[in-house]
Design a binder for these strands. Sequence first.
RNA 1: GGCCCCUUCGUCUAGCGGUCCAGGACGUCGGCCUCUCACGCCGAAAACACGGGUUCGAGUCCCGUAGGGGUCACCA
Length: 477
Amino acid sequence: MKSVRTRFAPSPTGYLHLGGARTALFNYLFARHHGGSFVLRIEDTDKARSSQEYVEAILDGLEWLGLEADEGPIFQSGRDELYRARVESLIESGDAYYCFCTPEELDAKRKAAQAAGRSSAYDRTCRDLGRTPRSGEACVIRFRCPAEGQTGFRDLIRGPVVFDNAELDDLVLVRTDGSPTFHLVVVVDDIELGITHILRGEDHLSNTPRQLGIFKALGAEPPVYGHLPLIVGADRSRLSKRHGATSVGAYRELGFVPDAVVNYLARLGWSHGDQEIFSRDELVECFDVEGVNKSASAFDMEKFTWVNFEHMRRMGDRELADGSLPFFPDDLRPAIDPTRLQAAIPLLRDRAHSLVELADQARTFVDDDVRFDAKAAARFLGEEEQGRLRALSDALESVDPWETTAIEPAFRALADTLEVKLGKLAQPTRVALTGGTVSPGIFELCEALGKQRTLDRLRNACEQAAAGTLPLAESEA
RNA sequence: GGCCCCUUCGUCUAGCGGUCCAGGACGUCGGCCUCUCACGCCGAAAACACGGGUUCGAGUCCCGUAGGGGUCACCA
């Protein structure tokens, strides 16, 4: 058996979206699982709609996801000779012909056909003209599609699929301007690159019999196809802008980590028993077209967020610290001490569902400019609390070593002495240290902050609260 | 509209004729834990689209119906 070769062939007419990313992923996994190779091909035959910007966006997206290709990117724009040679052989064998119908004529015929309820397929006016163009005469080249019989194939995911050839169209292979179209270049390149398996979106299902015809006319053995169910929005319609973010880059900016995106996308339309969380290696190990579903799957932000959370908690401190760095405010980032940030990660890991949240929660650990939430200060930094906090800072003064095991007893002893519940001490402390009412455990917080910072913040907050000069956080817009 | 594809809890899914009065996960709702918020733990509600067959027996096979989706370009 030939070794497996798959490909991902996006057209650079937009950013890498979730559907494309999943198609790339499945081809990647299939190739890796079978020890084969994965080729990246850029389908930029539509010069008007393709752009370098999108090429780079797609390349970036794939790199970020870690879906590196073994070959490519191969750009179709540089391979005209290849396509021309194949078309000539098709003309020669009679499998392709010149068509002189103008776009206006075709358009009119289509409309008339639709109005009359007939098939709007090309009426094959020029099919048997047997004419070659006079010099300078405008024409396209069409594929001579078998008019009778059936074209069927065994889909890797759907099983046997059959189309009546009568339903197929004599599609255009070469445009008036001499440029090759999608159907032609796809087939030629899949032959040239020796592609053995193609996993693509279900929207290509009806293209497959047409392309199979071209393979046959070219005397080439076609690859095996598998058509993936589409990803749809919560309303079950095709995923689009109105469903919110659809580009991979958007999720990167939302603080999703690549492994989580890969995991979630893999599980959308594919499963392996009851397992939900997969590492990259596990995916390569377990991936199998048997596990691919047939029906469209709805993108669910809630579950995606949970998957991200699960991956984040499996990441190392260093990795998370580095990953969260881009999500701090620009003016703060240069001042961040990596060691302090990293020390905060263990306290935050089970609290953040995204890198954005992580950076937000880590801020108080790396930024000594504490800003107070007005409501929190009003409620927890009154005179009574200030007294307790002064007593606390005195008590903490003698704590040694500065570890939770020593800090906690100090808190509890003071609470006993003051005859208050721990909460009456802990919550004001939290506000004094962080400016807000939400944070990791208070003892861990103190330890991570260090003795000096803890005492400084405690005393500062008391002074400022007493003087009515607490710097307030800007209220949420 | 023609053709093609699809149909298990709100969502992702397990199930490949009996072990399914349908299992897991997200989400939701209770509860526990608790210095706040999380995490964790325990528990609950929640689905085989419908109708015919085949079979001793169907979520699982077949055929219809309904619903959803895709596609019908000199776009890919």
